[in-house]
Design a protein around this nucleic acid. Structure first.
Lengths: 244, 244
DNA sequence: CGAGCTGTTGACATTGCTCAAATTTCGTGG
DNA sequence: CCACGAAATTTGAGCAATGTCAACAGCTCG
């Protein structure tokens, strides 16, 4: 029982890849580091592994590290005192985690499935950005993208119906996960639970479940399991999302 | 009729202040420019004036300029094809405007009242950030704050009731506009319309109006006019906002 | 096999929206 | 200064979308 690899044989090997081997490097903050200088990066980066539902950090915790998702999925959320939760984003391989304000994380983060994170201390990151100004540019660019995504999400939360919310969510996943060249029918993998989806879309799990069923009845999606969504006709789904 | 200052005598004088005289400089991006180098800033900054409800730029427009609000208030919004609107933020003096993605603004911006903006071309801004790295740091810091505010707003939009939304909005305004030392009772100035508030909070104007009336009946606020909110007891308002 | 968790479905309650009308505010022109 | 019309705000009544509560089904793990 002490060797975790025996408990869950399916989990990713807990051996960190080197930066040179990292297959999400070009999508991550590290894209701003020249290939020949990846060694300098490796010197200051460490790796941490998380089991499903394990906390990475909590809101308000002192922010010592910034993270890069190497493997798996993370949910980022904010809570109200009575426990209501808003998930502000789902992160996957290559996504950056750990912007902070006033030296404390302004949100919590939890692993959804088996997760590997590359960690870099804030001091080290600061020094890296001084040594390699392109890293700072890249961080600004990533913040910009995140801000733009946040604005899209505000539009969704404030102004879309339950049906539109779920359709937008599915199309977001498609654009994020699926190569445009990929042959249809497309299949989406949803690592997060209905409860996560509900808290991301500002709905209840019941409404999410009902809306999934409604889309299935209309043959816009297939649901072989709750975690797998088949999309027989992507264009039809897009049309449904853009119709009022 | 050709001299605009005669049409609306109350408007702000349309004479730009110099950067040295600017009283919001320490809150703006320009805070990262040393006082003795403000001259370099003035060389590349121009000024534009807007009347109430005038468009600054539209979503999707090529993003040539970044802006700094010098005077007045601006609303930033996103639209759905059928006209539903989500206001993602209200900007006041010192706030930055014009982050973009893929060389196009990802949102629209309109003047709420009489507005003066300091404008800087993106090319000039880029060069300025190279000459003065502190400006880039400041921009990153401001993006971070904006992102954190966006996350708070997602929590509001997705998980709060109409009453909680309006209370949060009022407290946001208090924290932004009022010096903590200021004597109570406090009076808030709301330059934006009920329709703007509704589109910011993800509600309808009717619900906003009803909720204002409800808070007034409970003596949590006073409404001498629709644009002025008196807060007799700030602590009571905060208590109401934090109670579920 | 049984416990427990996640997801689905049904019945009903409630919040906030829609439509409509009254009221107030504000700018314009006499 | 006052009258008028337009626009913004407030208020009311009814309704629809979504939330709440409850039961049930399906799956996983011991």
């Amino acid at each position: 029982m002490s060797d975790k690899s025996e408990i869950s044989p399916n989990r990713v090997a807990r051996t960190p890849r080197t930066c040179r081997e990292c297959d999400v490097r070009h999508r991550a903050l590290c894209a701003a580091v020249e290939f020949v200088r990846l060694g300098e990066l490796e010197q200051i980066v460490s790796h941490r592994f998380f089991d499903p539902n394990q906390t990475v950090f909590e809101e308000g915790e002192p922010a010592d590290y910034a993270y890069n998702v190497a493997e798996g999925h993370v949910r980022v959320y904010k809570l109200l005192p009575d426990g209501r939760r808003q998930i502000t984003g789902f992160l996957g391989p290559g996504d950056f985690l750990g912007l902070y304000r006033h030296d404390a994380y302004s949100y919590g983060a939890e692993a959804i499935d088996e997760v590997e994170l590359c960690c870099i201390g804030h001091g080290d990151l600061e020094r890296l950005m001084i040594k390699m100004p392109a890293v700072r540019d890249r961080l600004l660019e990533m913040s910009r993208d995140e801000l733009s995504a946040a604005q899209d999400q505000m539009l969704l939360l404030g102004r879309k119906s339950a049906r539109e919310k779920l359709l937008s969510f599915l199309l977001l996943k498609v654009r994020h996960d699926i190569e445009p060249t990929e042959a249809q029918p497309v299949t989406l993998d949803l690592p997060m639970s209905r409860s996560d989806i509900a808290d991301f879309l500002g709905l209840t799990i019941e409404t999410v479940s009902r809306t999934f069923s409604e889309l299935r009845k209309q043959d816009l999606i297939e649901l072989p399991t709750a975690q797998h969504v088949g999309i027989p006709d992507l264009a039809a789904l897009e049309a449904a999302a853009n119709a009022e």
